[in-house]
């Protein structure tokens, strides 16, 4: 019985370490644009779409350009290389996951929050 217990404990420890390590490295904190600018690595920012008439793909770079304003009121120009999520223009708020590259925020992932309560919604992944 004790032998079993030891094996079980070792397995639990290994598993916990494995889970904890991966959990820590994949955890991206929610922050504001100001915090994201001063931080290396990935962050996610919940922000609101402004200037909705000017959301467009740039023909030279092939990326989607738009402007976001976070809850503190900071503006950020965001680029996203990938498909625009369905309903993007009508989103209440969006979550961008990425980091600042120079003067713009480069989003690796784009999540759309929709105003409706119970609807299967849309997501954009690279």
């Amino acid at each position: 019985m004790s032998k079993k217990l030891v094996i079980g404990l070792i397995m639990i420890i290994i598993f916990s370490a494995y889970a904890f390590y991966n959990f820590q490295s994949a955890l991206s904190p929610y922050s504001t644009f100001t915090q994201a600018a001063s931080r290396d690595g990935q962050t996610q920012v919940l922000a609101f779409l402004i200037d909705k008439e000017n959301i467009a793909y740039n023909r030279q770079t092939g990326s989607l350009n738009f402007t976001l304003q976070d809850e503190e009121g900071t503006l950020a120009f965001v680029t996203y290389r990938g498909a625009k999520p369905n309903n993007f223009e009508h989103a209440e708020s969006v979550v961008v996951i990425g980091s600042f590259k120079g003067n713009h925020f480069e989003a690796e992932r784009l999540l759309v929050k929709c105003p409706s309560k119970y609807e299967e919604q849309v997501e954009g992944t690279k």
Partner: peptide, 29 residues
């Protein structure tokens, strides 16, 4: 592992952080 990832905002919340894991967590673990 999937459950931990799904509840990650709650787990991170316990340590006072506002955070969640991204999909890389699932692919890696």
């Amino acid at each position: 592992l999937i459950l931990i990832g799904t509840l990650s905002p709650l787990i991170a919340g316990l340590t006072g952080q506002i955070a969640g894991v991204n999909e890389n967590y699932y692919l890696k673990t």
